[in-house]
């Protein structure tokens, strides 16, 4: 009978080797983008991690809905953002118009058109928008652009 107990432990030991994941935990984070008081539909909001160790990390990002609202995604849809300081870029591209007659990538669909914010908030190193994602905070970010 002792054999069986020993046998039962073998798979348990094998399974022990499969744990582990070095992703930092994410916190729920959401927000809203308005331009001149009006909600912005379909803008790409990207949170660029700040600091020497974090500059190549994954980036929380979102697309705003027709109310201008967004939930940040990092590792899965709407999961949130890791804690830390961020510089935020917002671009609001016009739809790219009809699909070109000749495509080189087979991706189809209209490509993004020009930015309706003229790239004013589109450069990570120069954007005036800075926010911090903190544990215990509501992590709701309002961007009222002009």
């Amino acid at each position: 009978m002792r054999f069986f107990f020993v046998m039962a432990f073998i798979p348990a030991f094998i399974l022990c080797g499969c744990a582990g994941n070095d992703r930092p935990p994410v916190l729920k984070a959401s927000g809203e983008v308005t331009v001149g008081g009006k909600p912005v539909d379909g803008a790409l909001v990207v949170f660029h991690p700040q600091g020497k160790e974090r500059e190549r990390d994954v980036k929380p990002f979102a697309k705003t809905d027709d109310q201008g609202k967004f939930n940040l995604s990092t590792y899965a849809q709407d999961d949130g953002a890791p804690e830390g300081d961020y510089a935020i870029t917002i671009v609001w591209n016009k739809p790219g118009g009809p699909e070109p007659k000749m495509s080189f990538t087979g991706e189809g669909g209209p490509k993004a058109g020009p930015d309706r914010l003229n790239g004013r908030f589109g450069t990570p190193s120069a954007t005036p928008l800075k926010k911090t994602v903190k544990k215990g905070d509501a992590n709701e970010f309002k961007f009222e652009l002009k």
């Binding site: 990538t105 589109g122 450069t123 990570p124 190193s125």
Partner: peptide, 20 residues
Amino acid sequence: CTSINSGSITFFGYPATATS
């Protein structure tokens, strides 16, 4: 992989003035 698609340029940290 010929470039970065125009809708994802700022996501990868490039300025919005960059193009595909």
